[in-house]
Design a protein around this nucleic acid. Structure first.
Lengths: 194, 194
DNA sequence: GTCTATAGAAAGATAGAC
DNA sequence: GTCTATCTTTCTATAGAC
């Protein structure tokens, strides 16, 4: 029996991985089902044995970004966690991330693409966002200036905005200056007494 | 003579205004030439008397955002300018901006959409970005922490990232908390001795 | 310059063979 | 489950009338 359940599961995962990589880099509309299936080593026709529509796949693919590393509940911050955030800043706000052809963070690479999609896709993005912001909140020592002030959300907006802008602009030197400025500001947020 | 040069110019400007509004809200791929022309009060066929392609129109439309209010050279910052930036923060990082159906800032609404386009479009975005960041740099008192540190670029990334995220996520309360957190951080950048 | 009509290409989705 | 073939829709771009 050539087609076992495990085989189907592997095919599904290959499709999801290809979809996430291609969507992240090019956005929803500019990637066809054919592109994704070819990247996963299959043809168009096999697609609908796994997903009901392209939009369905988009939501599922974005969700896999959560499962991978971000679905973390908030914890108490500890002093040593600043080191982890320093590493995040250096990696996230880097040209290596901006130029990455297959592994960029969908929160930054798809931010404006998601805004125009249906609720299912936006809910998937929101879940990834919540997971990531919870993780940051658990490591960020900086206290808010009021009950409604959540520095983790501003920290993450700075990272996402920096990468999105650095990717969009057509000026290599300026792109690097954007990332450097954001790194500087983000690092300043790691020290409570800034 | 029904069709004067002035008439053509007015038609062109209507097309550009419709294009900027629709592209900004929905992105490049999700808007058809038909949509734009109908919004401008014309039909498809008239389009190519004004622009050579849809991509051409995209670049031109983004550029009009510069001409309108952002093509400003850098000037010396003055203390009173903090008030203008405070107004910018309140307006830019607001639900009214995020929910605006026709007047959003293309830097925030199109950031990830632009990244996948050709050089002409990215150059237009870059020019708008430079104009806006120059304007901010001229009003921001916060000094950088080194010769390579430009706080205006981080400030703008925070604004763009905040709006892009607030637009993408599917949780009204969280969206408002993102904007509030970014407002708080941006305001903190207005006082040099933070 | 703007219109209607249409050519040509691309892509989402389905049908049937293996 | 995956393949090839095809239906159908949508859209960019062009052609020709007024």
């Amino acid at each position: 029996m050539p087609y076992t359940a495990a085989h189907k599961q592997r095919s599904r995962e290959r499709i999801l991985a290809s979809a996430l990589a291609l969507f992240t880099r090019q956005g929803f509309e500019q990637v066809s089902i054919n592109d994704i299936m070819a990247d996963a080593g299959m043809t168009r026709g096999a697609f609908y044995a796994h997903f009901s529509s392209k939009g369905d796949l988009y939501a599922e693919a974005v969700l896999t970004a959560t499962v991978k590393n971000n679905d973390v509940p908030a914890t108490e911050p500890a002093a040593a966690d600043s080191l982890q955030l320093a590493g995040l800043i250096a990696g996230y706000l880097s040209q290596a991330h901006v130029k990455n052809d297959r592994g960029g963070c969908p929160l930054a690479f798809l931010a404006t693409d998601i805004a125009t999609r249906d609720d299912r896709v936006r809910a998937a993005y929101t879940r990834v966002y919540k997971g990531f912001s919870n993780k940051i909140r658990g490591q960020l020592l900086l206290p808010g200036e009021g009950p409604d002030d959540d520095p983790a959300l501003a920290f993450l907006a700075l990272l996402i905005g920096g990468v999105a802008v650095a990717r969009a602009i057509n000026d290599e030197a300026l792109s690097e200056r954007v990332l450097a400025a954001c790194r500087q500001r983000a690092m300043a947020m790691l020290t409570t007494g800034e």
